[in-house]
Write a protein that binds this DNA or RNA. Structure first.
Length: 515
DNA sequence: ATAGGGTTAG
């Protein structure tokens, strides 16, 4: 009674030979493939033990018994399911029990899009060839997805072919379809080919919107032909009262091009021009400028841009702050960097752990001159420990050193233990400082355990460490312990010449006479 | 009415 339902896996059964490249003819001439709607994709359809899959073992494009194919299909289901996170459109296509109905070309486009997003380009193209079995006719949207698919595969010629087919079929490719192609070409630096498409469209008498032009601007900037980009931008600006015009994306593209070649001032000039003609700069505009100044070694001007943003009612985002912070660190403006760090933390932005490490190390170094900075280093370091499971080796080393400077040997030892826990070697640590420090505070046992920590973890204990400790033990009359250590040193080939030889014999003799 | 299209960091 219920009409047989085409399951997704059946789509891949080779009832007929697949056409190598998808054709765009609207033929319904697949006799063995009864076109039945709707298509239901259920989790069950993908069941890999399904006996229907046995039919697919012949020479075909998709072999369901092949391990990787199974994995791919599985991943595909995941991706289609996770479509719910895709642009608020889930409810339309995802029904309650995870069934996926295809009734309209729009549903089909969504499926193709899902495949595209999951980078299943070949599957996407294959699905496209099955389009007619759903008695569906591709529309502009379908074609732009297919064009994008070819582009992602780096098959620009094929993509262009699709565009021509669209035109031949009498369909009007709209600006969105073209944008996909132009963007893909420009992103790969194939600006010349992109321009050919522009020329082609012009000859066809089809007008393009501002977006494809923006792609071109970006493409030109990308290959370093910024001046040409500026020229085009100016042309676009002149035509404002026509249908084209410029928008903030256009300016962003060219400004970025200028910034990338060290012409940030000119970029700022363009910014002012954009303001003049009434465009509203967005966070990307400002971030572009920040990046420009940062690259040019003008990190303090990044802070200026940050202030400008606030004046323009533009809320700096994580990228704004990260870029500024990165610039300040790169050019060694450590105090300002800490200020920006504090601001980020205050807002609740996560700071990159590597930048935090750099900040800690520089603050430590700087604190030799400006004592107070060490507290800032502490603050950032504590945050790092809260955040990550491990802290990078160099940063802990520097902090251990800084703790030693301040006679905070407990903290130093705690961090040395962390280093061991994290599997770091202790070779870079100045253990004699730690041991001397503990001894100086009269804490011989802590000094001893520091030495043992180093020894137990394959570190080379140098003469100074042994000497300091043996002397200290001797001074405290702990002769037995001193001689033990003396022996350990000897075993390592370190012959100690302490202030006073430990005299175990004397010691025993003493005991002997007493009893 | 509407799917499909363009921007910034490390």
């Amino acid at each position: 009674m219920a009409s047989p339902i085409t399951k997704c896996f059946q789509l891949f059964v080779p009832h007929y030979t697949l056409i190598k490249t998808p054709s765009f003819t609207k033929s319904n001439n697949h006799p063995n493939m009864s076109p039945v709607k709707p298509l239901l994709i259920t989790a069950h359809s993908f069941s890999l033990t399904n006996s229907s899959l046995q039919h697919t073992t012949n020479n075909n494009l998709i072999n369901f018994n092949h391990k990787t194919t199974k994995l791919r299909i599985k991943a595909l289901v995941q991706n289609i399911k996770s479509l719910s996170s895709f642009k608020n459109k889930p409810d339309k296509i995802l029904q309650k029990d995870a069934q996926f109905q295809i009734q309209t070309i729009s549903d089909f486009n969504h499926l193709l899009m899902a495949l595209l997003i999951s980078k299943e380009f070949n599957l996407c193209l294959i699905m496209f060839t099955k389009l007619s079995s759903f008695q569906l006719v591709p529309d502009c949207c379908t074609y732009s997805i297919i064009i994008r698919c070819h582009c992602e595969k780096n098959d620009v010629e094929e993509a262009k072919g699709v565009l021509f087919t669209v035109l031949e079929n009498g369909l009007q490719p709209d600006s969105a379809t073209i944008t996909v192609l132009i963007n893909s070409l420009c992103k790969r630096g194939k600006v010349k080919k992109a321009m050919e498409v522009f020329e082609f469209m012009r000859r066809k008498g089809l007008k393009l919107g501002v977006q494809p032009y923006n792609c071109l601007l970006k493409g030109l900037s990308y290959i370093g032909r910024v001046d040409e980009a500026i020229e085009i931008l100016m042309g676009m600006k002149k035509r404002t009262n026509l249908d084209l015009g410029v928008d903030v994306y256009s300016y962003n593209a060219v400004m970025d091009g200028l910034c990338k070649v060290g012409r940030s001032d000119e970029s700022m000039g363009l910014f002012n021009e954009a303001i003049e003609i009434g465009l509203v700069p967005n966070v990307v505009t400002f971030n572009t400028l920040i990046q420009g100044y940062s690259r040019e070694g003008r990190p303090m001007e990044c802070l200026g841009v940050l202030k400008m943003m606030k004046k323009h009612d533009c809320v700096p985002d994580c990228i704004s702050y990260s870029t500024v912070l990165h610039g300040l660190l790169k050019w060694n403006e450590i105090v300002a960097a800490f200020g920006v760090y504090k601001e980020m933390v205050g807002i609740g932005f996560e700071v990159d752990l590597r930048m935090m490490g750099t900040l800690v190390r520089r603050l430590c170094k700087r604190s030799l001159k400006e004592k107070g900075l060490i507290h800032d280093a502490d603050e950032v370091f504590e945050k790092m420990k809260d955040r990550g499971l491990v802290v990078d080796k160099r940063t802990v080393e520097v902090m251990v050193q800084a703790y030693c400077w301040r006679d905070k040997f407990d903290e130093a030892l705690a961090n040395l233990n962390d280093m061991v826990r994290w599997g770091y070697s202790l070779e870079a640590i100045e253990f004699e400082k730690v041991i001397e420090g503990f001894c100086g505070q009269g804490r011989v046992d802590d000094a001893l355990s520091s030495l043992l920590l180093l020894h137990a973890n394959g570190g080379i204990v140098d003469r100074v460490c042994y000497e300091v400790l043996v002397n200290e033990l001797n001074a405290r009359g702990r002769v037995f312990c001193a001689s033990f250590l003396f022996g350990v040193a000897l075993k390592q080939g370190v012959v100690l010449v302490p202030n006073k030889e430990p005299m175990p014999c004397e010691y025993y003799e003493g005991r002997g006479t007493a009893s």
